[in-house]
Design a protein around this nucleic acid. Sequence first.
RNA 1: GCGGACGUGGCGAAACCGGUAGCCGCAGCGGACUUAAAAUCCGCUUUCCAUUGGAAGUGCGGGUUCGAGUCCCGCCGUCCGCACCA
Length: 850
Amino acid sequence: MARFDHEAAERRWQKAWDDAESFRANDSSAKPKAYVLEMFPYPSGRVHIGHVRNYTMGDVLARMRRAQGFEVLHPMGWDSFGMPAENAAMERGIHPGGWTRANIATMRAQLKRLGFALDWSRELSTCEPDYYGQEQALFLDLLAAGLVYRKESAVNWDPVDMTVLANEQVIDGRGWRSGALVERRKLSQWFLRITDFAEDLLAGLGTLNAWPDKVRLMQENWIGKSQGLQFTFQLDGTVPQGAAGHFDVFTTRPDTLFGASFAAIAADHPLAQALAANNPVLAAFVEECRAGGTSAADIETQDKKGFDTGLSVIHPLDQTVRLPVFIANFVLMDYGTGAIFGCPGHDQRDLDFARKYQLPVTRVVAPAGEENAAIQDEAYVGPGLLCHSAWLDGMTVDAGKAAVIGRAEADGWGKGVTQFRLRDWGVSRQRYWGTPIPVIHCNDCGALPVPRASLPIMLPEDVTFDVPGNPLDRHPTWKHVDCPSCGKPARRETDTLDTFVNSSWYFIRFASAPGDRPFDPVVAAQWLPVGQYIGGVEHAILHLLYARFWTRALQHIGMLDVAEPFAGLFTQGMVTQRTAFKRNKKTNNIVWVATNNVSSNNAGWSVESDTKRRVSLGRVEKMSKSKKNVIDPDDMLGRYGADALRWFMLSDSPPERDLAWSEAGIDGAARFIQRVWRLAETEAGGPADSQPDSDDKALRLLHRIIAAVTSDIDRLQFNKAVARLYELVSALERAPAGAGRRAGVIGLVQMVAPMAPHLAEEAWATLGQPGMVCDATWPLADPALLIEDTVTIAIQVNGKLKDSMEAAKGMDKSAIEAMALGRDKVVRALAAQPIRKIIVVPDRLVNLVV
RNA sequence: GCGGACGUGGCGAAACCGGUAGCCGCAGCGGACUUAAAAUCCGCUUUCCAUUGGAAGUGCGGGUUCGAGUCCCGCCGUCCGCACCA
């Protein structure tokens, strides 16, 4: 009996699928359509084991849907613009395009070796003009519809390299290359009006039943709808030069207004700017607030710092009260109005600030009887009644909110508003390797859209990365154009689009990709929304929210009649691997050792395989090049074959959880492949056509497993489907030869086919079945074969298991009770105590309470 | 700092609606086949006490219930996201 030869089978069947165009999606098919999509990869170099896991999951679903009679769209492409290509260009002096396209070629070959059922005819790459040119057209459509605008916004600025940095390039507040302290700097940038859709995006979450609850919750919190009061503080006394005499604040807690002890504004607030102009000390403080990165984590973990401006504002509910105005580093210009009132008693951040600057702390909300309990180290944010609040005393928090909003509106100093945490989407990037923003700046006519006829605006190829800054900006000719309106010399926009724009509509282009338009709305709508979208949970907010927005924006301007792009979403876990390290003898610094160069010696110690020197084992973490714990799929493909690798990716760990790579695990997968193959070979010469008896054990088990596996794959619980298939294999290995076993093996091969397709095709042919298994109809479980006539009933005494018994299914309560009371073990456990209560759950258990 | 999740044997895990905790795999132990090895097959494998059998057990501490891995409250730990990484 020959072992399964994975190399020969992979070659044979990959060619057979290609020749038959088995996985090409037909737009005009009459079958029901199923769109299965995995998040397309960034072509970073080589296929990562995490990609293999992601695409294997999608492939199993796509193949099963096809077998179930759907017309399946399962495409692949490349999210090929982005910063790593520019980094590679700077480090190695090569062109980002050359680097990217070489990576794509490598990775395409790797994916093909894995035997995915992909429609390669629809492959796209976002860095090619046929894609980004159409994206520019969409940008112009959104611009024309008023969904795009320009405003000033902060970026991370490296003062030594003279360049804008991404958040990930800021490490502990310093530029990653130069090590210089990063500053926040303002630039004029393009924004998309995602906030116009805040309410729709929030409401739409309610329709996404096939999304994980946690992702919906994360998006809900991200959008951050809150109701509150926006009101105006009037400055008391002389108004500083160049400033208004008042400023607006937003609060979600207008009920606590009597507890206010200060007001605070952002360092970038116009009032702060005006004051800084004439006050060098304050100007220095404002400058200090600008140091450090722009990310939320950077800003909010800074020490709370304030600067007393010496100004004060009049309390709107009590004209006799004055509140000092501070400039504070934790107040953000981007959220609300860039100014707050501080109520230390009921907001922890305000309390910390008040303690630091010795400001009064007043309790204005209290549970009954605690009105005079002083606030200590913790702000009180619980429920209660208002106190120390004049005419609000005794009201609930909610009633107080409504009362203050009512008074503000009646008196004209404020109004109730709905506020969103969501900010407009800044899409300008000061980088080369991205979609050029199709706009021309003219000194006389302003910022104008590029004429449609001149699309695509191509990226120039002749650029260098030997000097810092954006190569588009310093290119000798590229940016110089004539104004499309007045004809005078003008300049192109040299910023490119955020790569999240590229990934906000690629799934539409997969469904329909005409040469002269971004997509055909009728063809695209046939496939959309994507039935099942699969990718990493790290995309739970940004990518998924931007794609939802983009789709709604297209719907809003009448280009596509689809509201939500992804009907079903699944977020998969990472593939992790143990790390290993040794220490540098002089510095004691950690030196990572490649995991694939670590083995155990005779004494059971971990050593470097080549030098035999001892190493320490680190923790199991996400694979990364820097920690040298990356497993290359190509090695595994060569040693174990595509099917074993795919099988291991689906085994053991639930797909939403992290999967720890292990050599032993893939060994087990490879053994399973051989076991299935041996079963197929034992049936190779079997009868072509024979009917098993309906009470055949193998047949009954097969149908139970068909039902379980089908529903497991439906719910993407591949680890459970795998466990059931192991069970079937073990049973079939022991089953007597005959029609039942043969039927079992045929069914097994069909169910294994989505997971280990090469093995399944080879086995299918060996079994003498017609055609290819990828074209065979998915097996259906016969309900008549699933019915069992006996059940096992558990017997508990006081909720503790004492015995169990076999009984006919559907036996009535009193019969079960009588049967249970007659059992030896039960009699012993009861020890003649009187029974107070008996609970019987039919077909399940009896609980005797004494 | 804010937001989200997760925690069950030596390990990855399973457990429908609150109803017999640990399916399946890995590792381990014992055995068969073999001159030997590989491959394969059979058995055992939560912990503790024990002779039949019994007790404990799902991160920790409480609670609800006839009954809690599952529901509620409070801790502890780990991981993920935070708007210019993709």
